[in-house]
């Protein structure tokens, strides 16, 4: 069992940062709603949600930065003239067939940009919640806008995650040093 360095980075980006962020989103939206609703009574601490939101901010930025500056250059690499095997050039591999070109022209082109709305939105959400805390329930319009941005962040990350997974399924990012995870045995 082995994995290449490029595949490992893709796993860290998608499964580590991206998927964890998506999992955290639903919890954050529910807690933001619950802690700031006008009928919320018991004065519970907001420290846990503060830390939770800061962690989400870190995850969201880590996901887009590793995606754009580590994995995307491997994805969009240009093959030398005359290259027949495009396995190491995922963008060109997708574009080489009418049945897969849409994963690049629609999927990656959308994912490239929509993904960045997630960290921008969640950074704003975290800042506002940490600053206002439970007082947010007294700012109804601000609370509604913050919840909408949190949902938009979830949707943006969901679009990016879906296309990331499908693109990697159709044209995986391969290459680099191979890491041996275990030696298989015949049964």
């Amino acid at each position: 069992m082995e994995i290449t360095v490029r595949s490992l980075w893709t796993l860290i980006h998608g499964m580590g940062f991206g998927a964890l962020y998506l999992l955290a989103c639903s919890g954050a939206i529910v807690e933001l709603y619950r802690l700031t609703k006008p009928s919320a009574s018991a004065p519970t601490s907001t420290r846990f949600l503060n830390v939770y939101l800061i962690t989400m901010v870190v995850l969201a930025w880590a996901a887009v930065l590793t995606g754009a500056y580590i994995i995307y250059p491997w994805y969009r690499a240009t093959p030398p003239p005359g290259t027949v095997d495009l396995a190491l050039f995922p963008q060109r591999l997708l574009m080489s067939s009418p049945s897969t070109i849409g994963w690049h022209s629609l999927g990656m082109e959308w994912k490239d940009h929509v993904a960045w709305f997630a960290p921008i939105s969640i950074t704003m959400v975290a800042f506002v919640f940490i600053k206002y805390g439970r007082d947010l329930k007294n700012h109804r319009q601000l609370r509604s806008a913050v919840l909408t941005f949190a949902i938009a962040s979830f949707v943006s990350a969901g679009i990016a995650g879906f296309f990331g997974a499908m693109i990697n399924k159709n044209a995986p990012v391969y290459g680099g040093y191979t890491i041996q995870l275990s030696h298989g045995e015949a049964k």
Partner: peptide, 23 residues
């Protein structure tokens, strides 16, 4: 349990509008 806000809304509005502009 709504009461008078302890903080002004300006800081939140600044964060909100700038996030929209950045996006």
């Amino acid at each position: 349990n709504t009461a008078s806000p302890a903080l002004t809304n300006g800081s939140g509005a600044a964060a909100l509008l700038s996030a929209g502009i950045g996006s």
